[in-house]
Design a protein around this nucleic acid. Sequence first.
DNA 1: GATGTATATATCAATCTGATATATGCATCC
DNA 2: GGATGCATATATCAGATTGATATATACATC
Lengths: 195, 195
Amino acid sequence: MDTRTLCLAILQKGAASGYEIKKKLEEMPYRIFQEVGFGSIYPALNRLLEAGHVTVQAQAQRKRPDKKVYAITANGRQELEGSLLHPPAQDRFRSDFLFVLFHSELLAHEELADLFDTRITELKSTIDQMHACDLSGASPGARFVHGYGLTYYENALDYLCTHREWLLDETEARRQTTSATWCPEVSSTVPGGDR
Amino acid sequence: MDTRTLCLAILQKGAASGYEIKKKLEEMPYRIFQEVGFGSIYPALNRLLEAGHVTVQAQAQRKRPDKKVYAITANGRQELEGSLLHPPAQDRFRSDFLFVLFHSELLAHEELADLFDTRITELKSTIDQMHACDLSGASPGARFVHGYGLTYYENALDYLCTHREWLLDETEARRQTTSATWCPEVSSTVPGGDR
DNA sequence: GATGTATATATCAATCTGATATATGCATCC
DNA sequence: GGATGCATATATCAGATTGATATATACATC
């Protein structure tokens, strides 16, 4: 979803500055399905201004820099609702972690093991944070997306834990027999289904 | 991962044209963790040429346009291996589908139901395709990533199937009681954990 | 004083996105 | 027969995004 639509979605819930919009988009559950930087937020807000989808009001603050608070217009609400009616674009997923694992043979055993352990630690931390989220005032949509994200992280953690040794061992074996047709012993957690 | 590194990864397995590189990146298991367009492949190949990480040879073809076949250099291999040693960047996931579900209250009941059904159909098709993949010659890394992706799709399908009715019903109830503090009956598949 | 953090707005070079253009063939349809 | 569509190929473009940086008002720490 383009940055304009994301800003409209946040502003639909209440007026906010560019900085506040970014902060909200970094929280759960937005964080599960979107990511956006200042470099695209401010140009997007300016485009929304030009299109009459938002208005802006400068505010002075004590002990803090001035801020510009943006509010959605009726046109902006219409625009947001219109974009929800389009068939959603394909999900987009990019993972340098999986790219590196795909090339496991080019990595040393220890480096590969470290990658796993770092990612497993991160996943556990994310899952803990998500379990601590207070969803008491959340909409059905928010709860659903939260649950979707949590399920993903839990399953990813489970997959990494149950297949870590397999990849380390297979990669080691492959490295030692790169030209052989050796068929390794099949274990119960062999990825790729039947052999 | 930037497009140059992706191109080097493909060329490491054998020389290829820009078009062939894109085709390979669209296949499993690359498709699970990366996506890239011609608009970035050709400039990336040109930059790799300038850097001496690839060489290029033009080839005429019968009944087809000429093609330019790129091959990785020793410098290019070093570059690829070097990039595998950096800590991987954070995974990036964007989903318009989840964005729309997050705003379920702004959609009509039928529209919401259609979204679910379309996605469920797509997921089943993807899972079928992945089950039909021949992994007999695949590397451990490729098998691992394939398994990771398949697990994700299967779990996403499961989550959608088990929570579809919940979101439709909750959203409907919320729409009818938007200012109430009504507490709905808790079912065994309520997302968001404890209430 | 330098460094770091938080709140704020803004910008920039490099890269990517989605679409489009062009070219060589072949197949199908009205 | 011409238009349309597909596949194989290379290339480009306007708009958008990315990651970093700059600037400003405060405050805290070393």
